[in-house]
Amino acid sequence: MSTPSGPGAPPGLQRERTGLSWQRTTLALLVSSAVVVRLLLAGLGVAAVAVGATGLSLAALFHHAGRRRDRDRRSGGADGRVLATTAAVALLAALAGAGVTLVLAGRA
């Protein structure tokens, strides 16, 4: 991370580990959207591209959220808003993915 803990900070590189955890989550979102797009290509056609674009935008959002968290923490204002948004986005993405999959399964 670009923000070293510095002297006097709690040991264990906790802030860095948390930053890396955000990066991991962003990557997981990218990978799972790539998988979903690839798999839905046959059933959805061009609409799968829209799913991929949505996945990319959400990954950008997660990336931004992780950096925002780090900024908030240094100013002492970190709270649950960013996390609630992240969870809501993940929930809606899962709902959408599940819905599309079940519709395609029903059509087959």
Partner: peptide, 11 residues
């Protein structure tokens, strides 16, 4: 991340 993995698996 667990949720994302479950989604990919289900799809």
């Amino acid at each position: 991340r667990t949720g994302l993995a479950l989604l990919a698996a289900g799809v």
